[in-house]
Design a protein around this nucleic acid. Sequence first.
DNA 1: GGATGTGAATGTCTTCACAGCT
DNA 2: AGCTGTGAAGACATTCACATCC
Lengths: 206, 206
Amino acid sequence: MRKIAESTVRRLSLYLRFLEEFEAAGVATVSSEALARRGSTTSAQVRKDLSFFGSFGKRGLGYSVPELAATLRDILGLERRYAVAVVGAGKVGSALVQYRGFPSRGFHVEWVYDRDPAKIGSAWNGLRVRDVAGLEADFEEVAPDIAILAVPADGAQAVADRLVAAGVRAILNFAPVQLAVPEEVAVKNVNMALELETLSYALRNR
Amino acid sequence: MRKIAESTVRRLSLYLRFLEEFEAAGVATVSSEALARRGSTTSAQVRKDLSFFGSFGKRGLGYSVPELAATLRDILGLERRYAVAVVGAGKVGSALVQYRGFPSRGFHVEWVYDRDPAKIGSAWNGLRVRDVAGLEADFEEVAPDIAILAVPADGAQAVADRLVAAGVRAILNFAPVQLAVPEEVAVKNVNMALELETLSYALRNR
DNA sequence: GGATGTGAATGTCTTCACAGCT
DNA sequence: AGCTGTGAAGACATTCACATCC
């Protein structure tokens, strides 16, 4: 398949959200124009984004809401279940473990790790916090599909190395460091200070 | 000033981080090539990013680490202090209130709001959780420079409207909704489910 | 009639490559 | 000699505009 831009994938993900809203509101079909308005983009952008993957609409009519939603779920790989491990049982980890938006989209946190003996063994939203030292042993049979890294900056690379060695192929990284990983591993960084800094720049230049 | 791409601003923010690391390590000058390696980009990209704002290096030598760091702080508007309000005292709000990376970069959380009477009045990291109903009154004299919106999706737009009316010009939005705000207000969205979905897509297509 | 799907045009971002300064 | 700063080229993304189909 031709390489698809990250920005396109993000928009598809947004479109799916809007479609789910339309579906909940009982709307049966939707035009590229309506989707565009909802996501502050243009109808041409919507159609172009979809056209990379096929043609899913009916001319003169628009798109069937449930059909397009199913198609997008398929494109994004959301028809399946993902087992997720959260490493780092601090405040960020805590927020992620009980984040409501995850299970409904197929992301299920099944492991929580920390290295602090005071936290290990405690129950978190029905999950026992495990010792990060046992990570490799735990993943011997089943590794998580996705690991969420929510440890302090200084330990992040070491944990990432171990996750990769244990078979993890996707990491959502909350630590403010640039992880070095083999190219077959997908990494997405979320850096809150950096987001605030882009706001700072925006404030200054308007 | 010419309009600068968001991607450029994000990279500048990263470069600043790397410069601070170099500074801590006692490195006095750095080449565009060294910065590029650190941030997995190219030396041409680094130089081009900087060139939008001026010329800060010495040919044959590179950039003075402390000087370039100061320049970037200036460009990003980080030489000043930002007063931040967090609205929504759930797990995400909690993580943000005590996030270590903020104060060192000039972002100071000074207000925390919720609408749950059980939470209002409790102390959070030295801050009293306030009733969101009193937001307008609290901001009459001084409004926060930046508001972080960490409330559930259904209440987010209403709170955003009130924040804007109260004078807030920048919002970091954690609610999974597309906020409608006047164009003079800067909004950055952080959507964790969406990040996982881009990982899902990446996993599927490799 | 009305909205899609898509080449072509335009606009934006990144990379190249080298003149010019230290 | 080494590395910056920058026009020009190239790659990529968005928008236009219209033929096509329901």
